[in-house]
Simulated assay, not measured.
Amino acid sequence: MSYYWMKGNTLKVPATLFKKNRDRLVAELKKKVDGQWTVLLQGGREKLRYNTDCDDLPFRQESYFFWTFGVHESEFFGAIDVDTGKSVLFAPKLDPSYAIWDGKINDENFFKTKYEVDEVYFNDGDSIAALLKQHLKAEKLLLLKADNTDSGNVLEVPSFKDVQRSFF
């Protein structure tokens, strides 16, 4: 069984909790939409300090993305087919040089097992639209956009190459 754990005396949260969250989301969406809908969420992105390759702050995943998929790494996208509940993660495709600085580059099966999703594909920046159509038969996307009334920040809808041409 996979789980999320911050080490030490913290609790281990089983990945099955995130599967239950996705199932609850799908159940509620089925009450509101009909037809071939796919939920597409974009996880958080690391912010670099000015013009350097140093992280500005320690990375923390977007709460809604963590609730849905349990993913704590940056640069992920996630999709859920509302009709079937099938879940897909799009992991960032890392350059081989990444291994020099940060260690082993994990494959799709590593993330599939870790996050207990149905499929994982690497996102090279050009492939999400095609993968959504090919593997989820996505026709219409449900995207999250929200205003934070406390900070004034706006959560923009997920963006990637060809999203406009492919779905809108």
Rank of each mutant, 00 (worst) to 15 (best):
F90P: 02
D126V: 11
A91V: 05
F122E: 00
P158I: 02
M1A: 15
F69H: 03
R22C: 09
D53C: 12
F69S: 00
K30F: 11
D83F: 14
P58C: 08
V33Q: 10
G44K: 06
R24T: 10
I105T: 08
D56N: 12
L94R: 15
D147P: 01
G125H: 12
A91M: 05
L132I: 06
A129Q: 01
D118T: 00
P158K: 00
R22L: 08
G44I: 02
R24S: 08
A79H: 02
K19P: 04
L57F: 14
E139Y: 10
L29W: 05
K145W: 08
G70C: 01
E75I: 08
D56E: 15
D83R: 15
A130Q: 10
E28R: 14
R49W: 12
T52H: 06
K114N: 03
C54R: 14
L40V: 10
D53K: 13
S74E: 13
L17T: 06
T68W: 00
F122L: 01
L142V: 06
D118H: 02
E62F: 05
P14T: 08
M6D: 14
E119N: 00
V88A: 07
A129M: 07
E108M: 11
G85C: 07
F76C: 02
H72S: 11
K104L: 13
L131N: 09
A129T: 04
K140I: 04
W101P: 11
Y121R: 04
D55N: 14
H72Q: 11
L136F: 07
K112L: 00
K137H: 04
R45W: 09
L57W: 09
T38L: 03
N9C: 10
V33Y: 13
K32N: 14
Q61P: 10
Q164G: 10
K114S: 08
A99H: 07
D23R: 05
L11V: 15
L48P: 08
D95L: 05
D126L: 12
C54W: 14
D150S: 13
A130I: 05
F66N: 04
N123G: 06
D81M: 07
R49L: 14
N106C: 10
G35K: 03
K12C: 09
K161M: 05
D150T: 14
D102Y: 15
D95Q: 09
R24W: 08
V163D: 03
E28F: 11
Q42I: 03
